[in-house]
Design a protein around this nucleic acid. Structure first.
Lengths: 243, 243
DNA sequence: GAGTGGTCTAGACCACTCA
DNA sequence: GAGTGGTCTAGACCACTCA
């Protein structure tokens, strides 16, 4: 038997939600671990199962918990597999969504050009990292990316062998730099491809390419990464749901 | 007393949600009007109030209904001020978001080509309406649109003078045809502009243009409009927030 | 004071998981 | 077969709105 603390004027489901959220924040359970069952919680706190379910529903819709029918309710693990297509909207012309392999052409410490400094909210000529990367499907180049990161948080990237890592950068940022990308803004336009990018992408000079600029931020809203990607228009399609 | 149609394998709250969504799509109630009370619905469909609440909860979280404690549950009024930029993501190169003026070049009843029939979920050669429209900023053409609508619901458009209306089609669809656009899927690519579109957009042949395809749906998820817009890449930029 | 949505109970039964 | 979450019932009582 347990008591709900917190403001008695709030509904019981809200108070239970708060109590559970606090215990989760204090690592009472590890990611991937199950919290007590609904019936255990309802007898522990003397609440009906409906009220317990409502509290858990809130935490599920906040992406803090995850239900699995027949098994239990679990603390969510950070989910790279799902965030993958969250931040990857390009698909092949046939509508497929595969993760293209990654080939890092260069990564080096430089000082920030003004556009980059502005995008990342850094002073002019601040220390940044520039990465040039090619994405390939079936060995064919499909995206050419230039990626800019504040050196302060991402120094560790210069010291690891990126060829030993998977094609997705955000899990790498998290594992090696402790930086979590939470949101991003993308903006698209198109251009006739320059000679340099034509060579990278194996397309004729002046053919149309889609240009995507992305600014990625952490949960606090601070800019973490700015990137510009170019892909040949014929191979890719960018999709959005508007609701 | 009323029966839920739809798939008996689905949960009752899901079936009630679908039934209500369909009636809303068919204009059983006007925007701003109240739907029946929870207790009226629970006796009409022989469901407990908990189940009715869950169905309504879904429609509320879809932004279709709006609860007001003590008053009732209401059909949400479409908010054109916000939906305007909700469905209009292009901005000028300088980052401004203006609504371009509209010039309808043609509107006529035709039979659906296969791509259009498929997109709209209609049989091949079904009766549709094709509209060709130019969008202009400061007198300069910025977007060329081809718009396809099922003739059954949009017949009324052929009988009104579109030049007397504002530049936004969705309020017109609602006012004259009773059709409300709720969601849309957009997909983008780019191409080297054809001669026809180059002339419409006043740009050199083969310069890069952004091509946007949009399928707009009503609250029941039925396709209402399919459009393809082309805009010169230099003038416009398409922006998205990913969360 | 009548009528609305909001909270909450104390279950029953089902679908699914796993040993 | 024991245990889990998922659906659903048949209410009671509360907070709020409005004439």
């Amino acid at each position: 038997m347990n008591r709900l603390s917190s403001d008695v004027r709030l509904p019981l489901y809200q108070r239970l939600r708060d109590q559970l959220a606090e215990q989760i924040a204090n690592n009472r359970w590890r990611p991937g671990e199950a919290i007590p069952t609904e019936s255990a919680l309802s007898s522990e706190y003397c609440l009906s199962t409906g009220t317990v379910r409502k509290a858990i529903d809130m935490l599920v819709s906040e992406n803090i918990l995850e239900r699995q029918q027949g098994r239990g309710t679990f603390i969510r693990r950070p989910q790279f597999q799902s965030s993958l297509f969250r931040f990857f909207r390009f698909q092949t012309a046939s509508g497929e969504r595969q993760v293209p392999e990654s080939r890092v052409l260069s990564i080096e410490p430089v000082s920030a050009p003004s556009a980059v400094a502005q995008a990342l909210g850094l002073p002019l000529e601040a220390a940044v990292i520039r990465m040039i990367r090619l994405r390939l499907l079936d060995g064919q180049p499909v995206l050419a990316e230039e990626i800019w990161l504040p050196r302060e948080q991402f120094q560790a990237l210069l010291e690891i062998d990126l060829t030993q890592q998977g094609p997705l950068l955000y899990p790498i940022y998290e594992a090696f730099c402790g930086q979590v990308v939470a949101y991003a803004e993308e903006s698209l336009t198109a251009e006739a491809v320059s000679e340099v990018h034509a060579r990278l992408l194996h397309v004729p000079v002046n053919s149309p390419v889609v240009v995507i600029e992305r600014l990625a931020r952490n949960y606090a809203g601070q800019p973490l990464e700015w990137r510009r990607s170019r892909g040949h228009a014929e191979h890719f399609r960018y999709t959005v749901d508007i609701r």
